[in-house]
């Protein structure tokens, strides 16, 4: 349903984060992009909704076409829910107001100056209910715990009524127990609604536990693409470029938001 054709990303400093890549993500698949910090998995993921604009190649979306025109991009983003590592919520607003951000794409500029219609409010509340935070709907997001904040982030993506979910290191700043809960939640929602998900992770054990398909990435190239069961020690060595038995070290790798000089570089709006 979304296809990358010879997509590459080179940052202004000259560093190539992603070498020309062809890959397709299909309906109903829970795909994990697996790799060490700085391998390029976030870059690849962010190409899927143009938060990183490819330096070359193009992205083709089923039913929309190529993501070049601004209107096509906005339409694609509206139906693509994104979950971020650092939640990326506005701390002083309520959980509900944060989730309502997911409904903005469905309304014009003028309509969105005033509170959105009751239907949208209800959709947002349902989304919060699905992540089990109905009771916290009117609380300020900065008063919630890290795991709860991430669930608000997931609710925001659900509220978009997405046809695809992207998650960029959604559990990198959570403890192991909460990580399993949050990934389980994302996987459950996607399975229920029959929507594909692309999730970047650096933890091998979590990838094996949740993925239908694993795409291993190292040094800006896809080095493995297949079922978790087919992942051999040789593949792991290629992915982590180190002794596969020491992959727990990769689990403790630092956040990926600092791995590139210009990670937040996006298109001018």
């Amino acid at each position: 349903m979304i296809r990358l054709n010879q997509v590459s990303v080179t940052y202004p400093g000259g560093f190539t984060a992603l070498h020309p890549t062809d890959i397709e993500f299909r309906r109903g698949e829970f795909t994990v992009l697996l790799g060490a910090s700085g391998a390029g998995k976030s870059t690849l993921l962010r190409c899927l909704n143009y938060l990183n604009v490819p330096s070359s190649g193009h992205v083709h979306v089923e039913g929309i076409g190529e993501l070049k025109r601004r209107s096509a991009l906005l339409a694609h983003r509206r139906r693509t829910g994104m979950i971020f590592q650092q939640h990326q919520l506005i701390g002083r607003l309520s959980a509900l107001r944060n989730v309502l951000t997911g409904r903005l794409g469905y309304h014009g500029t003028w309509r969105s100056l005033v509170p959105l219609p009751p239907e949208d409010q209800r959709i947002a509340l349902q989304a919060l209910d699905r992540v089990g935070l109905m009771a916290k709907a009117l609380e300020r997001v900065d008063s919630l715990s890290g795991g709860q904040q991430q669930r608000v982030g997931i609710a925001r993506a659900i509220a978009q009524r997405p046809q695809m979910v992207l998650a960029d290191e959604p559990v990198a700043s959570l403890d192991p127990h909460t990580s399993v809960q949050v990934l389980g939640l994302i996987r459950g929602v996607c399975a229920e609604d029959h929507i594909p998900a692309v999730v970047s992770l650096h933890q091998l054990d979590l990838a094996r536990q949740f993925a239908d398909r694993i795409v291993g990435i190292a040094a800006g190239r896809v080095v493995y693409d297949g079922a978790p069961a087919g992942l051999s020690d040789l593949h792991l060595e290629a992915i982590y470029r180190r002794d596969p038995t020491r992959s727990s070290e990769a689990t403790a790798a630092p956040s990926t938001t600092t791995e590139f000089p210009l990670n937040l570089a996006t298109e001018k709006s």
């Binding site: 909704n49 938060l51 906005l74 339409a75 694609h76 983003r77 509206r78 139906r79 693509t80 829910g81 994104m82 971020f84 650092q86 939640h87 990326q88 919520l89 506005i90 951000t101 997911g102 903005l104 794409g105 500029t109 969105s112 100056l113 982030g153 925001r156 978009q160 937040l264 996006t266 709006s269």
Partner: peptide
């Protein structure tokens, strides 16, 4: 960060500023 999230949800330029 939240600005980027707003953009990722398909909001246009003025919506990103406002929300």
């Amino acid at each position: 960060a939240p600005v980027e999230a707003t953009r990722a949800a398909g909001a246009n330029g003025l919506q990103v500023i406002w929300h």
